Amino acid sequence: MEVTGKVKTVLEQQTFGSGFTKREVVVTTDEQYPQHLLIEFVQDKVALLSDLSVDDKVKISINLRGREWQAPDGTIKYFNSIQGWRLEKLGDSPSGIQDTPPPYEQFGGKDLAPPNEEMDDLPF
């Protein structure tokens, strides 16, 4: 899976007694209802965040992780996390590559399909 958005904050690296290290980044998605996602990078993947700055546009490859935990009173709880494993900084499309397809109007009118798409008159 992938997440794209703008870096809101990069948190400090944490190292735990067992030698386990992690660092987290908050990414704000670019959609109608933006989401603020906390994505963690662990062990050797922590280095991927070293050149990251607030407001950088990024695409992050992620895995969803889930754990079950039993409390001392016997209650079962579940925890989820988002773990990043690849990070790509996105530019402001200097080569003209667009994130979304151009509107149909650019192809001559609202009733025309973009090139290389067949017209389909089926109602479904």
Rank of each mutant, 00 (worst) to 15 (best):
His36Val: 06
Lys89Gln: 07
Asn116Cys: 03
Pro115Asp: 02
Trp85Ala: 06
Leu38His: 10
Ser95Val: 11
Glu105Cys: 00
Lys59Pro: 07
Thr75Met: 09
Glu40Pro: 09
Pro72Met: 09
Ile60Pro: 05
Thr75Ser: 10
Thr100Leu: 09
Ile76Asp: 10
Glu117Asp: 09
Pro34Phe: 03
Ser50Val: 00
Asp92Ser: 15
Pro115Val: 05
Gln98Trp: 09
Gly108Pro: 01
Val46Leu: 11
Gln83Leu: 15
Ile97Val: 15
Arg86Cys: 01
Glu105Phe: 05
Leu38Met: 09
Tyr104His: 08
Thr75His: 07
Gly84Val: 02
Arg86Trp: 04
Asp44Arg: 14
Asp51Lys: 12
Gln32Arg: 11
Thr100Met: 11
Arg86Pro: 01
Phe107Asp: 00
Phe107Val: 00
Ala47Trp: 12
Asn116Lys: 02
Pro72Leu: 10
Leu37Asp: 01
Trp85His: 14
Ala47Leu: 11
Arg86Val: 02
Gln83Ala: 14
Lys45Glu: 08
Gln98Thr: 10
Ser53Asn: 15
Leu87Cys: 06
Pro115Ser: 07
Arg86Phe: 02
Val58Asp: 04
Gly109Pro: 03
Asp55Met: 11
Asp55Gly: 12
Gly108Met: 02
Gly91Val: 07
Lys59Thr: 09
Ser93Glu: 06
Ile62Asp: 00
Tyr78Val: 04
Ala113Arg: 13
Gln43Trp: 01
Ile82Tyr: 01
Asp111Val: 08
Gly108Lys: 00
Glu118Thr: 14
Asn80Val: 13
Val54Ser: 05
Glu40Cys: 13
Gln43Asp: 03
Leu38Asn: 11
Asn80Tyr: 14
Leu64Asn: 06
His36Tyr: 12
Glu40Met: 12
Tyr33Ser: 05
Ala47Tyr: 12
Leu48Met: 09
Asp111Phe: 10
Glu68Trp: 07
Ser81Glu: 12
Leu37Thr: 02
Trp69Thr: 01
Leu64Ser: 08
Lys110Ala: 00
Pro34Lys: 07
Lys89Ser: 06
Pro114His: 05
Glu40Ala: 14
Ile76Thr: 15
Asp73Tyr: 06
Pro72Phe: 07
Phe41Gly: 07
Gln83Phe: 10
Thr100Pro: 07
Asn116Thr: 01
Val46Ile: 11
Phe79His: 08
Gly91Ala: 14
Asp44Leu: 13
Gly66Asp: 11
Gly96Val: 14
Gly84Asn: 00
Glu88Arg: 12
Trp69Ile: 01
Glu117Pro: 04
Pro34Asn: 08
Pro72Arg: 12
Asp111Ala: 09
Thr75Gln: 08
Gln43Ser: 05
Leu37Ile: 01
Pro34Leu: 04
His36Glu: 09
Lys59Ser: 14
Pro72Ala: 13
Ser95Thr: 11
Asn80Leu: 14
Arg86Thr: 03
Arg67Thr: 13
Leu37Gln: 02
Pro101Ile: 02
Gln32Ala: 10
Pro72Ser: 13
Ser93Tyr: 04
Leu49Glu: 00
Pro94His: 03
Gly66Leu: 14
Leu112Gly: 01
Asn116Gln: 05
Gln98Glu: 10
Asp55Arg: 15
